[in-house]
Design a protein around this nucleic acid. Structure first.
Lengths: 122, 122
DNA sequence: CCTAAAAACTTCACATGTTAAGTAAAGGAG
DNA sequence: CTCCTTTACTTAACATGTGAAGTTTTTAGG
């Protein structure tokens, strides 16, 4: 992930912050518990990440009107802009890894990792 | 790694501290740079880990007589005892993972991960 | 011999992983 | 409605990952 980290470092965000932004951009506004599942983060980590992203004005939060324990997190216009500025490069870097490993081996690796995750009961 | 972490938590050490102890026990006394390679750790992390292990009296350090920039780190008797007390359980837990995945898939996963590591140029 | 550059760590600063507590709001039993 | 439990987070505390800077000791040149 080195190259991706380097790319994001230029923008001043980390891999995890990037993952959270992408989840919000792809899946739309949602509460922290769901974000945590999608981004494979524990809630304590996510709490800090959301605080950082909010201070950078890349996301916005509002209380859930139906359940005041919950919040609704959404990506901001600035956040969308960060995605737009880096998505192409990010995807290209992943493609490069796949190419270097070979498409078949790459898919096999993803399958096995996913399998390990499921069997471990997460 | 959950179960292994739990086992080690009883003894009061972490996964990385355990890895360092095992490297020292298997490969014998050596300098931090080599330990870092074997245990896949960066030197700043290793520095802290060695400080913790030393304060727990699980390792011992001495200056290298030939090159005063270096040190020689060795596992202590107490450290060896920790290994003896947990190695069986540790190996058994790995076997369980392998069994649940299937031996073939397990080997394939290790190969692919190793391959990824090499191609990434570490 | 003397100095600049490299090597081997260590220290810092910041971000996350992880477990345990703490807090506020929602639900459920009686 | 009241009390207890659960849910959804947030805080706290400690350990590691990571990039950058600092220190001491060697080594390579000149």
């Amino acid at each position: 992930m080195g190259p991706i980290r380097a790319m994001l470092a230029d923008v001043g965000i980390t891999e995890q912050q990037w993952r959270v932004l992408r989840v919000l951009q792809e899946e739309g506004p949602q509460d922290p518990t769901r974000i945590a599942e999608q981004a494979c983060l524990l809630l304590p980590s996510l709490t800090r990440i959301l605080q950082k992203l909010e201070s950078k004005h890349l996301i916005e939060r509002q209380a859930d009107p139906d359940d005041r324990r919950k919040q609704i997190v959404r990506i901001s216009d600035q956040g969308e802009q960060v995605i737009r500025d880096n998505l192409q490069t990010s995807l290209a870097l992943l493609d490069e890894i796949r190419d270097r490993m070979g498409a078949e081996r790459y898919e096999a690796l993803l399958d096995l990792l996913n399998d390990l995750d499921v069997r471990d009961g997460r």
